[in-house]
Design a protein around this nucleic acid. Structure first.
Lengths: 243, 243
DNA sequence: TCTTTCGTGTAAGATTTCTTCCATCAAATG
DNA sequence: CATTTGATGGAAGAAATCTTACACGAAAGA
């Protein structure tokens, strides 16, 4: 007889705990115990209760919102090819060739995010992206950040679908930074997700110049379908010197 | 004579760590170590470096944005800090009246996010939203999540602009959940941001039924411009019993 | 070439937090 | 009035994290 879902039966203090957590992003047990004048044990029990209802997430020493760290934790960090140092090198190199004030399309992917983190430290870019995670890296007051709307297709925050394509077809931008899953032996740039491939193609058509960002680990592999031949890119940016 | 500020001399990885922390609100050392493929010790050193520069705050087990509690730099964080338990009550009540499988527009705002967190625990909703923060609360495999594309207009993750309006005009959805800044004495529902008001209006036009989510603290106040009269809403959902 | 510097990984001890169990107290219930 | 239920605080052992210290290798400089 667990009637857990139907009744959001929270004590007044638990409700405040929840608001503190959702409001501040992260709160320590100690701080909460002090605020309420109760023992850490009691706060801990409140947090356990709330986490069992899925209203927040427990951490060692405190608690945070469910959507917060979880996103960067299990799903996004996603057991797969987690971001290696190479990706940061690729991102830094790509950011270095983008002139100030440029209009830039940013693809979905951790490598692109590394690049975005660099660009975000500068000012005045016109950003177009289909990744809501990438969008959040920028300060809207320092840059013009445009999110190409569409259907959310994964925990990576990628937007895909017809709307995205239609919108991209209307755009004319300076540079497109594209990520990929593989570059096969015949120099075809490939990916596994056909929806994302369509977005990448549309972005490349809308851009005066396209750059491929990928680590060398992608070379010699193959994937589901082709994005474009390597020759279609202005340059391929990897973690090794191409000189 | 602290020359610390002038040169944000961060390694690529440190920059991404910072972006993760600022983006997610809280990130564990373990998660970061896994993401970058380095030891926890290295991540800890990065975090120590960043915290010494005042760029983030250390916690036992991870790191979070500086001044998570008394943040004065981000208006969004400041707004969230005001989040009272009432908002969760409002969110829970609103979620309770949404039937399974409904197509729902979710406005921008912390109250809406409270509601979204509830909806995300169920399955099969068709979500339309202009808040990329709200979008991230849902699992794309459990729901159809559509982000209405536009220009990012604030740290709250809100998308506004003509594109948003045009897209909303083409939609036909079941329910719109709207937030507001004030409800004045003549029962006009108001807000401060005209761009966001336009979005709210368009969403209400696209929806068969609209619900206003607001705490009673909004009543008797005034704001910049009017969204709609109270009578335009199917129901006003607050934290008090309306019986 | 040698040396220095920097970033990194590893290990042991110290510290903090967590879990579990039990005792207390108040309110509700018989 | 006695009992039960629930919330709370405390203590001991377990688990996780932090600190400190040292070693290694790469890169920069003498």
């Amino acid at each position: 007889m667990t009637d857990t879902q139907t009744t959001p039966n929270l004590s007044p203090r638990q409700a405040v705990v929840l608001s503190r957590v959702l409001g501040s992003g992260f709160v320590t047990i100690e701080a909460l115990a002090e605020e309420f004048g109760v023992s850490a044990q009691t706060v801990r029990r409140d947090i356990i209760t709330l986490s069992e209802k899925g209203l927040l997430q427990r951490f060692h020493g405190g608690a945070g919102p469910v959507g917060a760290a979880e996103s960067a934790r299990l799903d996004h960090a996603a057991k797969r090819d987690v971001a290696k140092p190479e990706k940061h090198l690729v991102g830094a190199r790509a950011a270095a060739i983008i002139p100030d004030g440029a209009s830039v399309f940013l693809d979905v992917g951790t490598t692109i995010e590394c690049c975005a983190a660099r660009l975000a430290q500068r000012k005045g870019f016109r950003i177009f992206t289909t990744s809501i995670r990438t969008a959040l890296l920028f300060d809207p007051e320092a840059h013009e950040v445009n999110v190409i709307g569409g259907r959310l297709s994964g925990r990576d925050g990628s937007l895909t679908g017809e709307e995205v394509i239609l919108r991209l077809n209307d755009l004319r931008i300076d540079v497109a930074l594209i990520a990929c899953s593989a570059v096969d032996d015949t120099e075809r740039v490939m990916d596994f997700n056909t929806s994302k491939i369509a977005v990448k193609k549309a972005a490349m058509n809308a851009a005066a110049a396209s750059y491929l960002l990928c680590t060398t680990s992608k070379f010699g592999r193959t994937a589901l379908a082709t994005i474009a031949p390597m020759s279609r890119f202005q340059s391929i940016i990897t973690e090794v010197e191409t000189s």
